[in-house]
Design a binder for these strands. Structure first.
Length: 423
DNA sequence: TCTGGGGTCCTAGGACCC
DNA sequence: TCTGGGGTCCTAGGACCC
């Protein structure tokens, strides 16, 4: 019998900020999205004040000030580094680890009987992560991934931060305390339908007739029902699968009206996407660019465009990809609009190794030179920071479209100049 | 002034093939 | 009443995840 645990960092982004600001313990903290747009992470204290997920900052600013809520711009460099520290602790302690997102991981806990059973071991994991990283986590244990997820929901409200559904007689009672909308795989649309037929919690969902589940919620919904019943349908993934699409997009700090600015923004987004593409050892066959105005402003003229450029041969060369993006921009651009957001998308992705060489391929030496140049670029930026070496088409200074991050904490763990100081 | 960003999977329907 | 019967590939859209 397999046993899965889901380890989930509590209010992860907020917890990262708290590690370096211990004075914020027990106080409400929120973290904002890019451009300080809306709330994307809240501590329980902030939730208790009634701050919803996605709350627009400009509407809540006064409330936060009056109630003493600590507010941070998102600092993904910090969160990414803290995440990898948490994952390293888990990898040391568990036989199999699947990093599921920046703040969650599945762990295989089969065969932990010697160590006092999965629940006791889950408690050990939790204590070790807290001691070595300062990040509090909750651990849910179950016979399937979906059950582990549900157990994790229940663990969140416990002081010891651990809950196991394995081998307990009152499993049905426990599952009846998990809202159906909180079940992994059940989004707003399915929750609405389930409630309309009188299913409101996880215990009810697992009693749903399987043919009906298949018909109304496709095979993925059927898997959810089976997993809740203890039949494992979703295995552990050992290595992360290479991405089939790579996207880089951003809302602008201020609306953008000049084509030169859009060209700079798209160049920079494409540089980032190309670096991601190379990091996973892939080539892209199709580049897309898109841009749109602010749909919230109903009295302004609206435009939304998307242009795709097939690449003559699959590539990961930033120069070629930027050229494709700028070429796409020529088709995409419409003067007289205030653009709010733009981005690039790379698709038709294939592995660089084992690639079919095309009939009109450049020679091996040219390919080598191309690869060496990109490797040097990536190497310099890995060593000295992401913005060290780039392309002139991305602009150099005073990029008016850059995003706003007025409340960002320092890069405590990834920049020598911003290390935390101890008095 | 001000409302995130980055993914995956499934299905239906159309184009095209023999 | 009835209009062949399979396939495959691609795309758009929807639903879901964090």
């Amino acid at each position: 019998m397999p046993v899965f645990a889901l380890v989930d960092c509590n209010s992860f982004y907020c917890s990262c900020e708290r590690v370096f600001r211990p004075g914020l313990r027990g106080r409400p903290v929120v973290v904002l999205s890019n451009n300080d747009g809306c709330v994307i992470a809240r501590t329980p204290e902030a939730k208790a004040l009634g701050v919803p997920m996605g709350a627009p900052y400009f509407q809540w600013k006064t409330f936060f000030r009056d109630r003493g809520v600590a507010v941070f711009s998102s600092n993904y460099t910090l969160y990414g580094d803290m995440s990898s520290r948490v994952m390293r602790v888990l990898a040391r302690m568990a036989p199999a680890l699947e990093v599921y997102s920046i703040d969650e991981a599945f762990v295989e806990l089969s065969g932990m009987e010697r160590l006092g059973g999965p629940e006791a071991y889950a408690g050990l994991l939790r204590a070790q992560v807290l001691r070595w990283t300062g990040i509090p986590v909750s651990v849910g244990v179950g016979a399937t991934k979906t059950l582990a997820k549900a157990a994790n929901k229940l663990a969140k409200s416990r002081d010891d931060g651990v809950f196991s559904l394995v081998g307990r007689a009152d499993q049905d009672e426990a599952l009846s305390r998990v809202d159906v909308a909180d079940v992994w795989g059940i989004g707003p649309a399915r929750a609405r339908w389930l409630r309309s037929v009188g299913i409101n919690d996880a215990a009810g969902l697992r009693r749903l007739d399987r043919a009906t589940a298949r018909k109304r919620m496709t095979v993925t919904g059927l898997h959810t029902v089976l997993e809740l019943s203890g039949f494992s349908c979703i295995p552990m993934e050992q290595a992360p699968a290479p991405k089939k699409a790579i996207c880089s997009s951003r809302a602008f700090g201020t609306p953008l009206t000049r084509k030169e600015d859009m060209a700079e923004a798209l160049s920079e987004y494409m540089s980032r996407a190309a670096a991601k593409l190379r990091r996973q050892g892939s080539l892209a066959g199709l580049a897309m660019v898109f841009a749109h105005t602010n749909e919230f402003k109903e009295n302004e003229p609206q435009y939304s465009g998307c242009v795709s450029r097939p690449l003559a041969r699959p590539t990961a060369d930033t120069r070629v990809l930027i050229a494709a993006a700028l070429d796409g921009l020529d088709r995409l651009w419409r003067p007289g609009f205030r653009f709010k957001k733009a981005g690039v998308l790379l698709t038709a992705i294939q592995a660089e190794s084992g690639r079919q060489i095309g009939l009109f391929e450049e020679d091996a030496e040219a390919r080598q030179r191309r690869r060496r140049l990109m490797r040097t670029l990536d190497g310099v930026n890995a060593r000295w920071g992401r913005q060290t070496m780039g392309f002139a088409s991305s602009g150099v200074k005073s990029r008016s479209w850059r995003m706003r991050r007025d409340l960002k904490s320092p890069h405590y763990t990834t920049d020598w100049r911003e290390l935390p100081l101890v008095d």
